[in-house]
Simulated assay, not measured.
Amino acid sequence: MLVTLNDILPDAANSDYAIPCCNVFGYEEGRAIVEAAESLKSPIILAANKDMVDFMGVEALAKMLLSLANGSSTEVCVHLDHTYDEGIVFNAMHHGFSSVMFDGSQLSLEENIRRTKNVAQVAHALGVSVEGEIGSVAYKEGRDHIKSINTSPEDAYRYATESNLDAMAIAIGNVHRLTTPDSVIDYPLLEAIRNRVTNVPLVIHGTTGIKEEDIKRLKKTRVAKFNIGTSLRMAMGSNLRRLMNEEQDKFDKMYFMQKAMPFVQAEAERIIQLLR
């Protein structure tokens, strides 16, 4: 069943659980993630990141992800992840994405507010939810131009109240694409943000790099959405490599993908249970 962030995040923000947002890098991963959510009767967010948009295009991605969402027995939000170009955001809405992220984190506060507000005006008219980012969550690798800027509580307040967005990603020590849990979370900063922002669910990106004890602590705050990509990619890639090395006489892609999918499902189930 297709839903938006507004259908699933507000309750999570006001409770002690959170919703996983899983980056999808192909049909096999998407199907494994949805099957994990169905097995645990949990809502899930399927996210398409910039790499997949560049590779497949918005229209093809929408068809793939919407087919998974509409055919599911659980709530599934189809979300466009970090996107810096409004044209791509509007195209995603046109093709059926139920949620989008306009990432103005590299802009000035005033421009980020103005452009996010413009996106939200269009999105809300179409029944689509909008995520934005204030501060800037850095990348371990792959996007060297992305700054590392912790979120200012005052900027967060202005962004939340003036941009009309539905969910707000913050930077409090979290880092994208870490393969080990090395992030150091700034809890006093989070508390200061929570004290200023009381009406918008918060979002954490870079979950693979966060210790489990920190995730359990964070989900009890107003953090309602955790983005996960790296651990799912590792589950698929590492097991594909192992399986192909074990059976070097085999060459059929579907044979190996079907063998690797249960490992992705198991990782997705672990994440869902961790956030419950």
Rank of each mutant, 00 (worst) to 15 (best):
T4R: 06
T4C: 06
L9D: 06
D11C: 04
A12K: 10
N14C: 04
N14T: 10
S15C: 07
D16M: 05
D16Y: 07
A18N: 09
P20I: 04
V24M: 01
Y27G: 05
A32K: 13
V34K: 08
L40F: 12
I44D: 12
I45F: 15
V53A: 01
F55C: 04
E59S: 06
M64I: 00
L65Y: 09
L66I: 14
S67Q: 09
T74N: 12
V76F: 07
V76K: 04
V76P: 01
V76G: 04
V78G: 01
D81I: 10
T83D: 11
N91R: 15
S98P: 08
V100S: 14
S105G: 09
I113F: 06
K117Y: 02
A123D: 10
V128F: 00
V130E: 03
E133Q: 10
A138I: 11
K140H: 03
G142S: 15
G142K: 13
R143P: 00
D144P: 07
I146Y: 00
K147N: 07
S148Y: 05
R158P: 00
Y159G: 14
A160E: 04
T161D: 01
S163D: 05
A171I: 09
I172M: 00
I172W: 02
G173N: 10
T179M: 00
T180Q: 12
P181K: 12
S183E: 08
Y187E: 12
L189H: 15
L190T: 06
R194H: 14
R196N: 11
L202E: 01
V203N: 07
T208Q: 09
E213T: 14
D214P: 08
R222M: 13
K225D: 02
A235T: 04
M236L: 15
L240Q: 00
L240H: 03
F251S: 13
F251C: 09
D252E: 15
K253N: 00
M254C: 03
F256N: 13
F256T: 13
E267N: 02
R270L: 06
L275Q: 08
